[in-house]
Amino acid sequence: MGNLSPASGERLRIGIFSLTSDAGCQLEFLNLADDLLALVRAVDIVHFPMARTFNQNGPFDIAFVDGVPARPDELDLLQEVRRSTKVLAALGSCSSFGGVPAAQHFHDLGDLKKYVYRGMEDLDTLEVFPISRYVRVDLQLRGCPASKWEIMETVTALIAGRLPQLKAYPQCVDCKILENRCLLLEGLPCLGPITRAGCGVVCPSVGVPCDGCRGPTEEPNLTSAIEILTRGTTYPDLIRKFQKFCSLAPEYQEMFDRWRGLV
């Protein structure tokens, strides 16, 4: 990762870029509420089409990239951003893992164009991949949407000259500390034990099983997890759960291959 030094004393130039996605992750910047006001006082968000009328080009100290390149021009934009930024952060599970758009990999692209873009079959669409397939990515802020805490940790850490301390451990640690009911023990298909923490355990805290939107922990024990999770759901439903947000996570591919062999 680019070594950002605070020594310059200059305000960080931040760009927030939008590729194909539902833009929910960049919206999280606007949802920062009080932190947003403090943030814009402390740094210069010079590129943020969702919130600014006039947007500047690089160079950037940090670029947050929301979404996946699904059109050739988006790919050009992504590469231009990489060239002009020190630290490039994938913002959310689309840019980190393909996100919901990557569900196309489980269907025929031609069929999808036919059904989704009826009458626009000539649409120049790329196969969807995480942005790391095209450019070097310094940080992954996972989640659907990305977590506000991680956004602030990224910015404050880079201002201070610290590597952002993003959590790599499973949701269960934070969930237990919050003393939530264990949904998995109640028989619900909660992906918490194999999903990265960092969102504040949003879903299980309100009684909704973790959907795994933040993607796998390091070295998840999927074999055992599947055995436990299928007590509360069917195998096909479970596979669909894994395919929902982070279907291109490398850790999941073996599981999907095995599934393809079964169907």
Binding site: P170, C172, V173, K176, I194, T217, P220, N221, A225, I228
Partner: peptide, 14 residues
């Protein structure tokens, strides 16, 4: 045990 353990950390947190 490692075949079964999810490495979730629950056991140590509680």
């Amino acid at each position: 045990l490692a075949v079964r353990c999810l490495g979730c950390g629950n056991c140590t947190i509680v």
